[in-house]
Design a binder for these strands. Structure first.
Lengths: 236, 236
DNA sequence: ATCGATGGTTGACTTTTGTCAAACTACTAA
DNA sequence: TTAGTAGTTTGACAAAAGTCAACCATCGAT
């Protein structure tokens, strides 16, 4: 079923690590079975427990991965263009472990899981890329767990801010890319507590005005945060 | 370097999902570069941050994966025979994110990471197995994160006990396989709190005597724990 | 400009969790 | 057997985090 995948989407997807090195024919074969859809904000794309029929690629907008249990909900990640999500479920042909919803108007490509598995078996470069991507995802989650288990909420926030600052090329001022209540959930605390944590970081040179963060004492914040590449580096 | 890998170790390793389907010649090539060592208890095999030179395979005994930051330490997993650990670091050729220490006298096979990567590129079955294993590891960590973020410590303990009970084929009585302080750390709490959590579960039909757990009211415990396959099932 | 809705913040309070010190237990080694 | 050690438990207390209700700010629509 072909629903609006335009040629202009190809290069963007192709540029992803996951698809960059694979054979052109295999790439086209993958996309032939795929389709693209536009979603309004706050649409649930996936519910945890569903069978994993598609590998998803966010082309524009943003998607939140979250999970619920016993009436509680927690935010696990935010996916921004251009990247894939729920690769592991696709590979294992197992039910999704996380739900996904659009945060804003988003364009998402859906690649049939069975095609991904089929091409994996015939394209070594693609196989290599998938393994590499999965290993990276795994390591990211491990870092996340260490962050959660080894740090207090104040330390988690401090380190989060320093990571965001790095994403903003080290600027002294930058905007939060997440709603605060989602940030709170991602960091494993309540919105009320996040509010208090921001106030607690004032003592270490952090100013907050709405979504705008100012680091007024870089040294002090870094000294408090004690960032470690084995937790806070997303590259390695 | 060949240090005591005996032919008798081969079949056990071969039986692992990871190595079960690969070509015999490739399997032998992998093991040719490997060696086996016996370690006493409490030996640190790996320190987080080290370069990932070897894929490790626990042949006997048990190994704890843990991490430290700022003087704190947390237990992330226990590896029991026969299984591998730190596959992701091996694949990405990136530094280990976790430290590893033997809990008891243990026999560990060390397979050079570069050999793993080399064989991955020429053996499609092995590649498939690695991806499958990595995807499973990833999903396990995600489940763990959900457990940590969505549940209170009492709920985490209740679900842990039910999982252990299932491992014991549903017996009403079974032994903890972990020291309590390690269990506490794994579940994200202090030993003191674990003690109190056990007392808290008395109300739901849990009896504790040393390492021995008795489930005296299965229904009640299950009703409290609200286990979910999307968190507590290690298979899917 | 006003209203309403949503998200954010604040304060008072409760619950949960961690900390510290002491007591207790099981196990090991002399 | 006994002493010593490491692990566990307990109680008193402190700190951290969650809850609830009220209030404030922002934004969009009428």
């Amino acid at each position: 079923m072909y629903l609006g995948m335009t040629e202009s989407d190809f290069p963007e997807i192709r540029r992803l690590h996951l698809f960059a090195e694979m054979g052109e024919d295999h790439f086209r074969a993958l996309l032939r079975g795929s389709y693209v859809q536009n979603f309004p904000p706050q649409i649930e794309l996936i519910e945890e427990g569903d069978p994993s029929d598609f590998l998803h690629v966010v082309l524009s907008g943003s998607v939140e991965l979250f999970s619920t249990w016993n009436g509680r909900e927690t935010s696990l990640a935010t996916v921004r263009p251009v990247s894939t999500f729920i690769l592991a479920a696709t590979i294992r042909n197992a039910p999704y472990l996380m739900s996904a919803r659009t945060l804003e108007k988003s364009r998402v490509a859906l690649v049939p899981s069975q095609d991904v598995r089929a091409v994996f078996d015939i394209d070594a470069k693609f196989a290599r890329a998938i393994v590499s991507e999965l290993a990276q995802c795994y390591r990211t989650v491990i870092k996340n767990t260490k962050d959660l288990k080894l740090r207090t909420s104040l330390e988690r926030l401090a380190n989060y801010l320093l990571r965001q600052q790095r994403r903003a090329n080290g600027a002294m001022e930058f905007d939060l890319t997440l709603e605060k209540r989602r940030l709170a959930s991602f960091l494993g605390m309540t919105p009320e507590n996040l509010s208090r944590a921001f106030k607690g970081l004032q003592a270490y040179g952090v100013r907050v005005a709405g979504n705008r963060i100012s680091i007024t004492d870089q040294m002090d914040l870094e000294k408090f945060a004690k960032s470690s590449p084995l937790i806070d580096d997303y590259q390695t």
